[in-house]
Design a protein around this nucleic acid. Structure first.
Lengths: 118, 118
DNA sequence: GGCATTGACAACTGTACGGTCGTAGACCAT
DNA sequence: ATGGTCTACGACCGTACAGTTGTCAATGCC
């Protein structure tokens, strides 16, 4: 699907780098990552997410707003509750890639600590 | 060994979300993205990167420091010049994934603008 | 109707960080 | 040795943003 394009040649346009950076910053918040992780099970309400994450309702609502404006989640009003769901699931691929890099670094640090201290 | 790629089950640990978020913030700066994009062609010196990006030497050095401490680039001293190279090429996969999401959004916005406003 | 609950918005505060300036240290050439 | 070049470090300033608090609109329940 969206696997095809992904141009971004070496001379990356400045505007594009701004957009990409902005996107990364949106996902670069711990609470937002945990929010998305919970939404992985399906759509959920602000109240449920608030209880699940142990954060205040206002803060959860605020971060969901950021994710909504970034086009990562969608909102649906169900009577009195607002239901949020993920519409751009590529964020999970991003997290998995990052985790791969982190695990690589941990392994490397382990090797160093265990005796190859340079 | 550390081959277990991308665990991160639904109840994501808070510590891990912090690590992932920190990682995203490292890449979430336009200048750093452009820096990495230039290093895609191979290792380069601070001076060369400074000229290529039109930024100040101090700023380039500073951002390279951040990328270095994050384990994304490596440093090599060649006489009087410092040569930087990429050691974690997964950042490019990250950028491509983000670009895919962006293009999807642009396409959607185009569709809306062109008449399906409904 | 009156009350409680849910979610969003606005204002505020503290902190973190990007960018710049100045300077110190290391290396090379003459 | 001296001057010039390249890089890194420390300090400062301005901005951006995360988190909190307070308030209001909308809805459901009695």
């Amino acid at each position: 699907m969206s696997q095809a394009v992904t141009s971004v040649p070496h001379p990356i346009p400045v505007d594009l780098s701004d957009l990409i950076a902005q996107r990364f910053r949106v996902i670069g918040e711990p609470l937002r990552i945990r929010l998305l992780d919970h939404l992985r099970d399906g759509e959920s309400s602000v109240h449920a997410l608030t209880n699940a994450l142990g954060a205040t309702q206002q803060n959860v609502s605020k971060h969901l707003q950021v994710l909504f404006q970034a086009g990562i989640v969608a909102r649906r009003k169900d009577g009195t509750t607002a239901m949020y769901r993920i519409v751009d699931s590529s964020v999970f691929d991003l997290c998995e890639l990052v985790c791969g890099g982190l695990q690589r670094q941990v392994a490397e640090m382990n090797a160093v600590v265990r005796g190859e201290t340079r």
